[in-house]
Each structure stands twice: as C-alpha cells, then as structure tokens.
Amino acid sequence: MTLDPQPPVGTHIRLLADFTNGRPVFEVLPALLQAPALFELVGSPGLVLGCAAGDVLRVSDDGQFEVVEQGQNLCIQAAGRGYFTPESLADIRNAIGKLGGVAEAPPNLRFVVVTVSRAVGLSAIEQVMDRWAAGVDGVEWWFGNGDQANTAR
C-alpha cells in the first residue's frame, strides 16, 4: 500500500458573483487545490452562476473562472421575498434527500442551495422543486449551472 505524501489541500476560493455600484461582489466557497489556479469545487454556490460542487474550475486572481471539467452535480438556487423558515428548509432537505441530494442555507436562511446528481434527471428534480416552492410564499428557484442556468421557475 502506498500513501500519497501530499493529500489534496482543502482551501477556499473567491469567485466573482456580480458587481454592485461598480464594485465586485465575491462568494467564498470550499474547494480542493488540484494544481496552480485549478480547484475542485466542494460546495455549490448560492450567488455565483455556472458551476456546482464537483466541477473543476480554473480561477483567476480577479475571481473570474472557467469550468475545466464539469462534475456530476446540478446546482439549484432558490430565493424569496424574505427569509426562509427553518420548516421550509427542513422540507426541501427531506424532499431532495430522497433524491440523494443536499439542501443548504446560510444561518440567516436568506437563500437555499440544492446540490443533486444530474443522473437523477431534470424531470424528477423539477417536480421536487416545484412541489416545495408551491408551499413557500414568494419563492423562485433556478438552475445555477448547466444548460438550464438562469432559468427561473
């Protein structure tokens, strides 16, 4: 048995999400260093579009990135008029968990991020998300990566 003398290094990367008043807005996400400027994303973003956990990204110093290798996951982002309740987060965690995915939110419950395998299929994912969203006042959800990115529901 051989041991890798240098296991992957856990770190965080800063990705450009948008600009507000001409100033960049960044999202900091967990990642594994693969090579200089090349990272495997460990968590799906809540603000950034175009990537999901499992993707390998080339990241520049200004936070811009390109997906070098697409992973097996879809990222679904959801937001509403206000904050989510702990119950609504528990509901989507339970529903998406049945598909083998995970749902996460920041402590203030301002938005929800879902990571689920592409293999589950868009129809099954859309059904779960639509059913959940129908029970939450004012919520919209969209695919944050893949061909479906930026398609709000």
Score class of each variant (00 low, 15 high):
residue 84 F to P: 01
residue 105 A to D: 02
residue 107 P to M: 14
residue 49 L to G: 09
residue 44 S to I: 10
residue 144 G to S: 00
residue 42 V to I: 12
residue 33 L to H: 02
residue 37 A to F: 10
residue 19 F to H: 15
residue 43 G to H: 05
residue 100 G to V: 00
residue 147 D to Y: 10
residue 47 L to W: 03
residue 145 N to E: 04
residue 72 Q to T: 07
residue 83 Y to C: 09
residue 58 R to K: 06
residue 147 D to N: 10
residue 87 E to H: 04
residue 63 G to V: 02
residue 96 I to C: 11
residue 77 Q to I: 13
residue 31 A to K: 00
residue 30 P to N: 06
residue 150 N to W: 06
residue 60 S to N: 14
residue 125 I to T: 06
residue 22 G to I: 06
residue 104 E to S: 13
residue 104 E to L: 12
residue 144 G to M: 01
residue 83 Y to K: 14
residue 61 D to Y: 03
residue 143 F to N: 08
residue 75 C to R: 00
residue 52 A to G: 05
residue 82 G to S: 14
residue 54 G to M: 13
residue 16 L to F: 11
residue 78 A to T: 02
residue 85 T to N: 00
residue 25 V to S: 10
residue 77 Q to P: 09
residue 38 L to Y: 04
residue 24 P to T: 05
residue 62 D to E: 13
residue 66 E to G: 13
residue 48 V to K: 03
residue 76 I to D: 05
residue 147 D to E: 14
residue 149 A to S: 13
residue 97 G to N: 11
residue 28 V to W: 00
residue 83 Y to W: 13
residue 115 T to M: 04
residue 106 P to S: 05
residue 122 L to M: 12
residue 22 G to K: 08
residue 119 A to R: 09
residue 131 R to Q: 10
residue 105 A to L: 01
residue 31 A to M: 03
residue 15 L to R: 04
residue 106 P to A: 07
residue 94 N to V: 13
residue 125 I to E: 03
residue 119 A to S: 15
residue 70 Q to A: 15
residue 103 A to R: 02
residue 18 D to C: 07
residue 19 F to W: 14
residue 35 A to R: 12
residue 19 F to G: 08
residue 114 V to R: 06
residue 16 L to M: 09
residue 23 R to F: 11
residue 124 A to M: 09
residue 74 L to F: 12
residue 23 R to Q: 15
residue 32 L to H: 09
residue 27 E to K: 00
residue 18 D to P: 01
residue 16 L to Q: 13
residue 112 V to L: 11
residue 143 F to M: 10
residue 64 Q to N: 14
residue 25 V to I: 09
residue 28 V to D: 13
residue 89 L to V: 12
residue 46 G to K: 00
residue 20 T to F: 10
residue 133 A to L: 08
residue 123 S to V: 10
residue 100 G to M: 00
residue 65 F to P: 02
residue 151 T to Q: 13
residue 37 A to N: 14
residue 67 V to N: 12
residue 72 Q to K: 12
residue 20 T to G: 05
residue 17 A to P: 01
residue 144 G to F: 00
residue 46 G to T: 01
residue 139 V to W: 01
residue 118 R to N: 03
residue 16 L to C: 15
residue 71 G to W: 01
residue 17 A to R: 00
residue 119 A to P: 13
residue 116 V to W: 01
residue 24 P to G: 15
residue 84 F to D: 03
residue 125 I to P: 01
residue 34 Q to T: 04
residue 107 P to N: 15
residue 65 F to L: 07
residue 61 D to E: 11
residue 102 V to A: 07
residue 78 A to V: 04
residue 145 N to V: 03
